[in-house]
C-alpha cells in the first residue's frame, strides 16, 4: 500500500528529528543544542515541502488531503477537532516560550574575541599587527636551540599551566572540572590551530581579566600571567603548546 504523500512528508520530518536525537543523545552522548536543532528542523521541513511540491502531481497529492479537510463536508468532525487543536497548540507553544522558568538565562560567550590593536605589558606597548614570536625563527635557523627553547617552554607549562589545561594539553587538568568555562583544550583543531602566536601572547599575558566584554572576563579563571611570567617565558610556552600538539600557528606564509 502506498502511503499518502502528506503522511510521507510528515514521517520524513519526524524520522529525521528522531534520528538526530538518537544519534547525538543516545549514540554519541553529546546532545544537539535545542537552539541548533530548531534551525535544523526548520530547514528540513522547508526542504521536504520543496521536494514534495517540485512536480505538479506530487504537489496535488500533497494538498489534496488538506483541501479535503477544509472543504469536504463528510470530514466535518475531524475538521472541527483540527481547528480547535491547532490554535491550542500554538497557544501552548507561545505560553511555554514565554513562561518564566528557573533556568538561568543563556549567556553567550565568544571564545575567541577579537584582540586589541595594541597590548600594554612589561612596561611597553606591543603592536598586535606586527607582533611575532622572537623564537620562531630558530625552528629553521637553529633547530638545536629551538629544541632547547621548546623544552624550557615545557618546563614553564608543567610548573604553571598543566593544573588546569592538563598534562596532555587537552583541557583535562586536575582542577579543570571546577571551572566554567572549562580550560581550553589545545589539542582541539578549533583552538590554537586557528590563531596566530601574537593572539596567544595576548591571551596568556592578560588572562581572563584582559578579555573584552563579549568574552565575559568575569567568568574566566585564567590568571594574568604577565604578573608571574617573563615575556620570554610566555613566548617559550607558546612554542611548547604548538610543538606538543603538533599544530602550527595560523599563518599566511604558504598562501
Amino acid at each position: 500500500m502506498k502511503l499518502p504523500k502528506l503522511l510521507q512528508a510528515v514521517l520524513v520530518v519526524v524520522g529525521v528529528y528522531i534520528g538526530f536525537k538518537l544519534v547525538f543523545s543516545v549514540g554519541l552522548h553529546q546532545p544537539i543544542p535545542s537552539s541548533l536543532l530548531t534551525m535544523y528542523m526548520f530547514f528540513v521541513v522547508v526542504a521536504t515541502l520543496l521536494v514534495t511540491t517540485a512536480t505538479e502531481e506530487s504537489a496535488k497529492e500533497m494538498s489534496a488531503p488538506i483541501k479535503a479537510l477544509v472543504e469536504d463536508p463528510s470530514k466535518k468532525t475531524i475538521r472541527n477537532i483540527v481547528f480547535v487543536l491547532v490554535p491550542l497548540l500554538a497557544a501552548w507553544m507561545t505560553y511555554s516560550k514565554l513562561a518564566p522558568s528557573f533556568e538561568a538565562p543563556v549567556e553567550l560567550r565568544t571564545i575567541h574575541p577579537a584582540p586589541p590593536s595594541s597590548l600594554k605589558a612589561y612596561g611597553k606597548s606591543f603592536d598586535m599587527m606586527k607582533l611575532e614570536n622572537p623564537f620562531s625563527k630558530f625552528q629553521k635557523e637553529d633547530p638545536e636551540k629551538f629544541k632547547v627553547l621548546v623544552k624550557e617552554g615545557g618546563d614553564v607549562y608543567y610548573k604553571n599551566c598543566h593544573f588546569c589545561h592538563g598534562d596532555k594539553l587537552d583541557g583535562q587538568g586536575q582542577y579543570a572540572q571546577g571551572f566554567n568555562p572549562l580550560p581550553l583544550n589545545f589539542q582541539d583543531v578549533g583552538t590554537i590551530a586557528q590563531l596566530q602566536e601574537s593572539y596567544l601572547f595576548w591571551r596568556i599575558a592578560t588572562g581572563g581579566p584582559g578579555l573584552p566584554k563579549e568574552a565575559t572576563p568575569w567568568l574566566s579563571a585564567m590568571p594574568v600571567w604577565k604578573d608571574f611570567l617573563t615575556e620570554d617565558e610566555i613566548w617559550k610556552v607558546i612554542l611548547f603548546l604548538y610543538d606538543y600538539t603538533g599544530q602550527a600557528p595560523r599563518s599566511w606564509a604558504a598562501h
Binding site: 534551525m39 543563556v106 553567550l108 565568544t110 586589541p116 573584552p212 566584554k213 563579549e214
Partner: peptide, 12 residues
C-alpha cells in the same frame, strides 16, 4: 530573534 544579539564593545 533567531540569533543572539551580541552587542559589540563600544569604541575604546
Amino acid at each position: 530573534f533567531g540569533i543572539p544579539q551580541v552587542k559589540p564593545a563600544p569604541p575604546p
